[in-house]
Amino acid sequence: MRLAVYNVENLFDRAKAMNLETWEDGRPVLEKFAALNALLGEVTYTPADRRKMADLIVELGMEKSDTGPFVILRRNRGGLLKRPSTGGVEITASGRADWVGSLELRDEPINEHAMLNTARVIRDLKADVLGVVEAESRPVLKAFSDEILASVGGTPFRHVMLIDGNDERGIDVGLMSCPQFPIGRMRSHVDDRLSDGSDRITFSRDCPEFELTTPAGNRLLVMVNHFKSKGFGGKAESDRRRKAQATRVAEIVKERLAEGWDHIAVIGDLNDTPDSDPLSPLLKHGGMTDAFTHPAFDDGGYKGTYGLCNPGNKIDYLLLSPNLIDKVEKGGVIRTGMWPGSRPKRWDTYEELKRPQDAASDHAALWVDLDI
């Protein structure tokens, strides 16, 4: 069977701030969005909180209206703010209980060429089981498989599953599989909490467990992950969150091994490198092996999986349990949907990929063939 993983970076719609030409262009918007959202969620608004919220609302382009270029403030009931005729914003609420509403990122459709190139990558993967990172929802993932994948000559997946996670931007993780690999029991970890006493959730999205059965009657447990990014927020906090996530996944793996699961795969975008401290609980002490390091795995000449695929950009993984790594026959990377750079061009791409905006994703797709 072929197991694969791919960060598709959304399929139909994506937050406008994440759909700019480069990540750095959208990063300030996402940082301000996160800061304002955190302040709005406070039980009590201090004078300093109210001043900061007002400043952020203006900086996000909502001085005159609740609809900014990248963010929407939805106010259903109660009073949060007023906009004086002299300009600026004044927060009138004293805490979260004074108003009902939400702060949301505005979406816009994905470039059509990018969407079709994403489908071409999935078509060429020929995966029996595919872990998908950054998909909007199960209906979106199912429609993409049935309609867009089919339109480029791919075979739609029979089984498509995605459990809503914790990310407010609508970038969840899911699993698709062929008829011969039905998805059985599923388990979510959206409510797992950090062990530091803060009662904060562990996973930025989720760590869903999907149980599958192969035609040979073997059981396979797949956990799809998308760890905390380095994109915004302080480095120390981001590193701490990724380490907590890696620690919790390693604990789950240990529990499942003790229960008798021989074939376990932890797959996804872990947002850090193999030698990093945050991933060490899982990669160095978790008993799992990165398929990238297997002698039969062909990395295509590049050690990374993101951007221009330099070694410092190895952030996507197929981690396999001891008995599963022994079943590897071969593996590889598909980069034909990624922008290859220009000086020099690093790899061949689809003919339809003529500019960076047409790239299917900034991530490579990884696959491995397993004899189970």
Rank of each mutant, 00 (worst) to 15 (best):
T305I: 07
D206Y: 04
I267Q: 05
V29M: 10
P179A: 11
P179Y: 07
S238H: 11
Q245F: 05
A4W: 00
S94L: 15
S280L: 05
G131A: 15
L282M: 13
I148D: 00
D146I: 08
D107S: 13
L56D: 00
M288E: 03
D358T: 02
T202Y: 05
S204E: 09
W367F: 15
E168N: 08
Q180I: 00
L39G: 08
G154V: 08
A296Q: 13
S188V: 08
W367N: 08
I148Y: 05
G79F: 07
L220Q: 06
R27V: 13
A97W: 06
E134N: 12
P139M: 12
P311D: 01
G153D: 11
F210S: 05
R343E: 15
L39T: 04
D206L: 10
K327T: 07
H113M: 10
A135K: 02
A97Q: 14
S145V: 05
K235I: 10
G231L: 12
Q245N: 07
R355A: 15
P311K: 01
N323V: 02
A17I: 02
E351P: 00
Y317S: 07
K314L: 09
D128A: 05
R106P: 01
E9H: 14
D98T: 07
S177H: 05
A150E: 12
D316T: 08
S145L: 08
P179W: 07
K314W: 02
I57Y: 00
K32S: 13
R241N: 11
F33R: 09
I110L: 15
S177A: 15
M62I: 04
K354P: 02
C178K: 12
S151F: 06
L125R: 06
R219E: 15
P344H: 13
E351C: 05
Q357M: 12
P139D: 12
T44R: 12
L319W: 03
G234K: 12
H285G: 01
L175M: 12
F297V: 07
V190P: 08
F232E: 11
S65N: 14
R193Y: 00
A244R: 01
